[in-house]
């Protein structure tokens, strides 16, 4: 199946701004799904609210466009009852880690087989450029006109600490890596987190004088390094990308099957 067969063509062109990284994520997510040879009926995409969350409208899967920050909770309800389906939950940085932060850490802790994609553009785009929990100290946004004094989360460290069994980071510049990582994440049996650094030239770029989309993508090229590389030691400012955690631990739906067995045995 070709990538274009996975989309709902009538909704294109998409709503994202020129230069936005989210279209690149959509493209490579579909390539990852194609690589895994998944059927459209096998995939449920659940999303919340924000620029990132509009991705669910464009794909020809079972799509559940929910409320801000709660997509993982809806996905949990679906997954528990249809464990054979692949649950993919694209979220923005504010959606996943501000309003949805509690749900994020608890879904990770349960190790339920859901793929969380955090499309990190470091800003609330849909509402016009307010700072997010991933904007970082010293940045600017429409609600931080002087300087943002909030420190950002490190998505990878947060996910590891919360118990995710697959944790990776890449960027919209590294598209081949993105396809491979997304395919591995979707294939992983357990809670998987993929942070994708995705440029928002319209708001984050403009407010922070980072140039246009190509400048921001060039930044990803020049300021990232493969996980565990020597360059990171020489230059600690570099952002590592790649797979940080990939381990097999008991998955939540499987664990609940054990509870059912024990409950039924208790009746005998």
């Amino acid at each position: 199946m070709a990538v274009k067969d996975y989309i709902r063509k009538r909704f294109f062109p998409h709503i994202w701004c020129p230069g936005c990284g989210h279209g690149i994520v959509l493209n490579n997510l579909l390539r990852a799904i194609e690589k895994l040879k998944l059927k459209k009926n096998e995939i449920v995409m659940t999303s919340g609210i924000g620029c990132s969350s509009r991705i669910s409208g464009y794909v020809d899967f079972h799509t559940l466009h929910t409320i801000h920050g709660r997509a993982l909770c809806f996905a949990t309800g679906v997954k528990m009852n249809r464990p054979e389906l692949k649950l993919i939950v694209p979220m923005g940085d504010g959606d996943a880690l501000a309003i949805g932060g509690n749900h994020f850490i608890h879904a990770a802790r349960r190790n339920i087989d859901i793929t969380a994609i955090i499309m990190n553009n470091r800003i609330y785009g849909m509402t016009g450029g307010q700072f997010s929990p991933l904007s970082g100290y010293g940045t600017k946004g429409t609600t931080a006109p002087f300087m943002n004094i909030d420190h950002g989360f490190d998505v990878v460290e947060l996910s590891k600490a919360a118990g995710a069994t697959f944790v990776a980071r890449t960027s919209t510049y590294h598209v081949k890596q993105m396809v491979d990582i997304l395919a591995d994440a979707i294939d992983h049996k357990g809670f998987s987190v993929v942070e994708i650094m995705s440029q928002c030239p319209t708001y984050f770029g403009r407010k922070n004088k980072l140039g246009g989309a190509t400048d921001m993508m060039t930044f990803y090229k020049d300021h990232t390094t493969p996980v565990g590389s020597k360059e990171k030691k020489a230059n600690p400012e570099l952002i590592e990308r790649g797979i940080f955690v990939h381990e097999d631990l008991p998955e939540y739906c499987n664990e609940y099957d054990k509870v059912i067995e024990m409950a039924k045995a208790s009746l005998k």
Binding site: T46, L64, T66, I67, R70, C73, F74, A75, T76, G77, V78, K79, M80, N81, R82, N102, H103, H106
Partner: peptide, 12 residues
């Protein structure tokens, strides 16, 4: 989360 989860489950 509780209400969201049961909504997802109901859909199935």
């Amino acid at each position: 989360a509780s209400l969201c989860a049961i909504i997802g489950a109901s859909l199935t």
